[in-house]
Each structure stands twice: as C-alpha cells, then as structure tokens.
Amino acid sequence: MTDQHGVSVVRRPGGTLSDEDGLATLLAAYHLRTEAEKGRAVADVDGLPDRYRAEISDPRTAFADDVVLVALSGGAPVGCLVVTAPADGRSEIKRLWTAPEFRGRGIASDLLGAALAHAAESGAGAVRLSVWKWRTGAVALYERFGFTVTESWDDRDQLVCMERSV
C-alpha cells in the first residue's frame, strides 16, 4: 500500500473483489468515456459492448487471474488499474483510470508505480500496455515511466502498443 497526498493504493487479487470496492463504478466511467472518445458515445452501461459490460457487472470474474489496484481517497475509490498475471514473461497493464475530479494529484503515477512493482514481484520480465493515440497525457505518463512504442499486437486503428522491461 502506498500513501501520498491522502491517497492510498491497495492491491486486491481479482478473485477477492467485492461490490463495496467501487471498482465497477470506476470501470463504467472508464468505458463510457472511452466509447465517447471513439465517437461511439452511449447513454449508459447497457449500451456498452458485451465484454465491457461483463467487466463492470462482475469484475471478480473478469479479473479473477489478475491483480487490481484501487486508489482510495478518504476510503472512496478514485482510481484503478489492472495488472495481468505474467504470461510468456510479460504482464499487461489495463484500465488505468483516475476520476476526473482527482486528476493532477499523481494518482495515475502512484497506480502505475505500484503496478510495475507488482509485476516485478510476480516475476515478469516486461510489462506491456495499449493506449489510444489521442490520450496524449497517458502516453506521456507511460513514456516518463520508461515505456516505448513497440510493434502492435492489436489491430485496432489508433491504438498504440507500448512496453518496458521491469
């Protein structure tokens, strides 16, 4: 657990998630914003693709083999990040999100630092991630943490794939 500026980052194995951890709300905000940025805004969670709705409705199952980091401020969830278990020597970072009203406080950096530490402890030799090209702030954050653009493993247009050694 880290604690900076009144925010703590807690590590939860995916299979131990509960309805009270606030992850579903954070994931819903993440996916709704992403769809809007892609030009496919939907009114609510029911309009999201099935795989995203599954994460929101049952994060315990969706991330059963992963570790979820949740940033808390005063006990309230304000950010999240998912780290997959290492496969072929690599972990993957997914779903980095900070509630808009909490941005600019280093929460994403805290989550990312905790994710890299977890990946190293788990035996991963590298960590990869994908990010939408238009999320320039996120790309810059990843670059500050040593991630570099790598060959894409995902054929979605405007998706940038990045990786770094642990």
Rank of each mutant, 00 (worst) to 15 (best):
D3S: 14
D3C: 07
Q4D: 10
Q4Y: 03
H5G: 14
V7T: 14
S8F: 00
V9M: 03
G15F: 11
T16V: 10
T16S: 15
T16K: 05
S18H: 05
D19G: 14
D21A: 04
D21V: 09
G22R: 02
G22A: 07
A24M: 07
A24N: 07
L27Q: 13
H31S: 11
H31L: 05
R33S: 13
E35T: 05
A36G: 01
K38G: 04
K38C: 09
G39T: 00
G39Y: 00
R40K: 12
V42R: 12
V42D: 12
D44F: 01
D44P: 00
D46A: 15
D46S: 15
G47T: 06
L48S: 03
D50P: 08
D50M: 07
E55H: 11
E55D: 13
S57R: 15
S57A: 13
D58I: 00
P59Y: 01
T61Q: 07
T61G: 03
D65H: 09
V67G: 00
V68P: 01
L69M: 06
V70M: 02
V70S: 01
A71K: 04
G75E: 06
A76W: 08
A76M: 11
V78Q: 07
V82L: 01
V82R: 02
V83A: 13
T84V: 05
A85H: 06
A85G: 04
P86D: 12
D88P: 00
D88L: 08
R90K: 13
S91I: 09
E92D: 11
R95V: 11
P100C: 04
P100Q: 05
P100I: 07
R103Y: 08
R103K: 06
G104F: 07
S109T: 13
D110W: 01
A114C: 12
A114N: 05
A115Y: 03
A115V: 00
A117Y: 01
H118M: 07
A119F: 07
A119T: 08
E121W: 02
E121I: 00
S122Y: 00
S122R: 13
G123I: 10
G125N: 10
G125F: 01
G125M: 03
L129A: 11
L129T: 10
W132I: 08
A138V: 08
V139Q: 12
A140M: 02
L141K: 00
L141E: 06
L141Q: 03
L141S: 05
Y142L: 06
Y142I: 06
F145L: 02
F145P: 03
F145C: 02
F145D: 01
F147N: 02
F147K: 01
T148H: 11
V149Y: 05
T150V: 15
E151Q: 13
S152C: 03
S152H: 03
W153C: 06
D155Q: 10
R156E: 14
D157L: 13
L159E: 09
V160W: 12
V160F: 13
E163Y: 06
E163G: 02
S165R: 12
